[in-house]
Design a protein around this nucleic acid. Structure first.
Lengths: 155, 155
DNA sequence: GGATAAATATTATGCACATAACTAATATGT
DNA sequence: ACATATTAGTTATGTGCATAATATTTATCC
């Protein structure tokens, strides 16, 4: 691949990252949320109570980041953290009533953002988009070891 | 759009942002660069000397961020900042020899990253990718005022 | 069962990027 | 020409996320 194309791809990803995040921040601000926190709320709403290690895995953030996120959401009363009975290292994270209500609002907002984001694209492209983006993300996943080249790792 | 789809889109963008940036960071580290700095070097290599306000516009970062980026790249000797003769507010940013050499290395690395990123996607999809991503980024641009809905603002 | 390894969470620290508030220089309007 | 508005850049501050180092608990292996 020549530099022009490569730059187009990398730059576009970078710009999209900045803008999408900024727009999410603008939409979340009225709810008193900062970007990143919404992901945690949605994950808890989807999956139910879970420990931080599971959250870390689910939302793709490192444990120290999860510590900070949960601490802040706990401080604002949207989640609780209780020691796990079976494992005294772990702490179970759970939505409060306030958190559940907020998650519902976030869901709506999430739809608004997604629709806004894909405006003007043909339905076909929109349908393929999540798969394509996930492939891209998987290809540059720094957690998994780099496959030597071109071949996909087996399941 | 229902929540499932919206979440798929938003989450995929978020994950791609995190991973692509992390991978870029891993590749740039051996060159002594942090992600973000490479964009400035490439822009200077492409366009030539420019003042910070132009850089801010070109790379999509706010002026205070540009101040920090340029300061650090100046400290590491890859760029110079000289007062503009015609406008004493502005400072002209320019690549040094070291910066030009580094930019060449970054170009190669940029190709590696892009190829790695799009691995496994059909050529058609890869070809369309920059355009699609730029559309997405444009749709959520917080700088431009939001069009009330669906209509594009006139030039 | 006692040493050792692994897992969970946290603290400390560093980076990019943002907004708000500010200074200094240039344009502009009467 | 002078008051005013705009523009270029900086400083101060706050956010998310990362890595490295650390305690504490649990699992594993003779």
């Amino acid at each position: 691949m020549d530099f022009e194309q490569a730059d187009a791809v990398n730059q576009a990803i970078r710009l999209l990252s900045l803008r999408h995040r900024a727009r999410a921040a603008a939409l979340l601000a009225p709810l008193g949320l900062h970007p990143g926190q919404e992901v945690l709320l949605l994950e808890l709403a989807r999956t139910g109570p879970m420990i931080q290690a599971q959250i870390s895995e689910a939302i793709g953030c490192e444990p120290p980041s999860v510590t900070l996120m949960t601490r802040k959401l706990e401080a604002s009363g949207h989640i609780t953290r209780t020691p796990a009975p079976s494992d005294r290292r772990a702490s179970v994270v759970e939505l409060t009533d306030s958190g559940r209500a907020l998650a519902d609002q976030v869901k709506q907002l999430w739809c608004t953002l997604a629709e806004e984001t894909v405006t003007g694209l043909p339905a076909q492209t929109v349908g393929d988009l999540p798969g394509v983006l996930r492939t891209l993300a998987g290809n540059v996943d720094t957690r998994q070891p780099r496959p030597s080249h071109g071949r996909r790792a087996p399941a």
